[in-house]
């Protein structure tokens, strides 16, 4: 498919699901109420619901889905590994651990700003560890196994920190950090996370040429004028910023960065850079769809959206692994 047509179609899809996300919720608002609530000011219930509850939720779904799809695509391109994904290789789990460790200790006060700070630190650490492992031992298997180990360790430490919290309610939040959710987020969270994510997208976009050149291996890429140190920085910082900020406000949402790039790659010329924008838009569409479904399946209790993405993604991952021997790329 031509890039413009593909990106246009995915953009329209993401936008439609964004609108759908605005229309789904436990409060029964009619379409007209929703639109006027969104546009008009005032303190009518419909207005407050649209502007303070549904809009931030939809915006976060869009931005976080974009981040996760984009991060998956860039990691796959950089590592030349179609199974690389922030969730699978443990970046999301470690980001969650960072956020949990700083926020729940209360050392930095109760401000929400400590969440992205901790998540970014965790994500940075995870990406650095994984790149170190990948550069020593390039095999797909090693990277995935290292990621599994990192994920389990981070998940366990997250539970430990929450259980050790002097606040008896903290332990109930384990599920949020392990199976993320966009429930009842507010504009504060948007302001907190979206600028960081956008900076991450920019850095990732700047690495587009480099990941294309890396299709031919590091030596050839360097001879094409790619500065490996700079590329590594762009990708580490870009992934840490976008995935870290996403995890800080929504917990660990897995598999989007795996499923989306894989489905869309055949529709591109398969150059890693051509996949970046489609993967971002596709990720946004998938997360918005999953988040709307989470509200429709269990309207009152509400499913954690990470449950849904795992339900879609984990069997997909298994299928990819089984197929991997025959045709990896």
């Amino acid at each position: 498919m031509r890039p413009l047509a593909l990106n246009g179609a995915l953009g329209v899809l993401a936008l439609s699901l964004f609108v759908l996300s605005l229309l789904v919720g436990p409060a029964d608002l009619r379409l007209g109420e929703s639109v006027s609530g969104l546009l008009a000011g005032g303190s009518e219930a419909a207005g407050i619901i649209m502007r303070e509850i549904r809009l931030p939720r939809a915006l976060l779904g869009l931005a976080i889905g974009f981040s996760l799809g984009l991060a998956g695509a860039v990691l796959q391109g950089f590592l030349r590994n179609p199974l690389a994904e922030p969730g699978i290789i443990g970046v999301s789990a470690t980001a969650a651990l960072g956020a949990v460790a700083i926020f729940y200790s209360g050392l930095a006060g109760t401000s929400l700003y400590t969440l992205p700070a901790g998540a970014l630190a965790g994500a940075f650490a995870a990406v650095l560890i994984l790149l170190a492992i990948a550069s020593r031992q390039g095999s797909t298997l090693t990277l995935i196994l290292a990621g599994v180990a990192l994920s389990s360790l981070s998940g366990a430490l997250t539970s430990l920190v929450l259980n050790l919290s002097p606040n008896p309610f903290a332990a109930y939040e384990i599920i949020f950090w392990l199976l993320g959710s966009l429930k009842d987020r507010s504009m504060e969270h948007v302001a907190l996370a979206v600028p960081l994510m956008a900076l991450g997208w920019l850095l990732i976009a700047l690495s587009g040429r480099a990941i294309d050149a890396l299709s031919l291996g590091e030596d050839a890429a360097q001879s094409l004028g790619i500065h490996m140190g700079r590329t590594r920085f762009l990708i580490v910082a870009g992934v840490a910023l976008s995935v870290g900020a996403a995890t800080a406000v929504a917990g660990t949402i897995g598999f989007i960065g795996l499923v989306v790039p894989h489905l869309l790659r055949p529709l591109t010329d398969r150059l890693p850079s051509s996949l970046l924008l489609p993967a971002g838009l596709g990720g946004a569409a998938l997360l918005l769809a999953a988040d709307s479904a989470a509200r429709l399946i269990l309207p009152a209790g509400e499913l954690n959206v990470g449950v849904l993405t795992a339900l879609i993604g984990a069997p997909f991952f298994l299928w990819l692994v089984m197929r991997a021997r025959r045709e990896m790329l």
């Binding site: 291996g217 030596d219 001879s223 790329l329």
Partner: peptide, 14 residues
């Protein structure tokens, strides 16, 4: 221009 000895093609590129 440098043509490395190891022949790497990372994706199913045309």
């Amino acid at each position: 221009a440098y043509l490395p000895q190891t022949r790497t093609i990372g994706w199913r590129l045309k």
